[in-house]
């Protein structure tokens, strides 16, 4: 059983999951009647272990640990928007331009961020600090325009306060893609004392 072991994979590539990650995965697997169900959690762990995105080796490691075909893991990873198949910037700004945000200025906010960062949405700044993408409704429409960065939602973002937001992020380590994957992994694990 690959889940509990560590070391070198059958394909010769090195595993990157830490001992801690191996333990976390084993515990999450125990929540389900079959290991395959831990596919999404395993991809979250991998996204953290591989520094915020999922290179082919990460998908391979998940496949081997869960004993599933590589193609299946890749199929799942590419279906969901929050798994990063390519690296993202240290801060991934996801601007909601969906219905109600779009009528209270979301496109202006997006345009302003593009202007200030000098990139188009879908791109990453040269220094690797910021990636900007446009996303569907983040379900906090009462605070439009909403921008998600890592595990945090910023509400009521306007063209006026965009600069403050970017400045705050530049000085922060809190909302990185790997940090998001770490938080999500922890949420799926009971705290000490509980089952």
């Amino acid at each position: 059983m690959a889940v509990g072991s560590n070391g070198v994979s059958a394909f010769g590539s090195s595993y990157r999951f830490s001992d801690q990650a191996v333990k976390e995965l084993a515990q999450i697997v125990s929540h389900y009647p079959e290991a395959k169900a831990a596919m999404l959690p395993a991809l979250w762990i991998a996204q953290r272990e591989y520094g915020g995105f999922l290179p082919p080796e990460a998908l391979k490691e998940v496949a081997e640990r869960l004993e599933r075909p590589y193609s299946e893991v890749e199929g799942v990873a590419t279906f969901y928007t929050m798994y990063n198949i390519r690296p993202k910037g240290r801060h991934h700004l996801e601007v909601c331009t969906c219905l109600t945000c779009s009528v209270v200025g979301a496109y202006d906010v997006m345009h302003e961020i593009e202007h200030q960062l000098g990139i188009h949405h879908g791109e990453t700044t040269k220094d690797g600090e910021f990636t900007l993408t446009e996303v569907e409704c983040l379900d906090w429409c009462s605070a439009g325009t909403v921008v998600q960065v890592g595990s945090k939602y910023f509400g009521n973002v306007t063209t006026e306060n965009v600069k403050d937001l970017l400045d705050e992020l530049r000085g922060s380590e809190n909302y990185t893609p790997a940090g998001l994957a770490d938080t999500i992994t922890k949420i799926q694990l009971p705290s000490q004392g509980a089952k």
């Binding site: 983040l138 998600q148 999500i184 509980a194 089952k195």
Partner: peptide, 20 residues
């Protein structure tokens, strides 16, 4: 939902408290 990290943290904590 994956994006709902803050809400999920609250649910996590509530579940742990309910177990205790």
């Amino acid at each position: 939902r994956g994006e709902f990290v803050e809400s999920a943290m609250a649910v996590r904590k509530a579940i742990d408290e309910a177990y205790a």
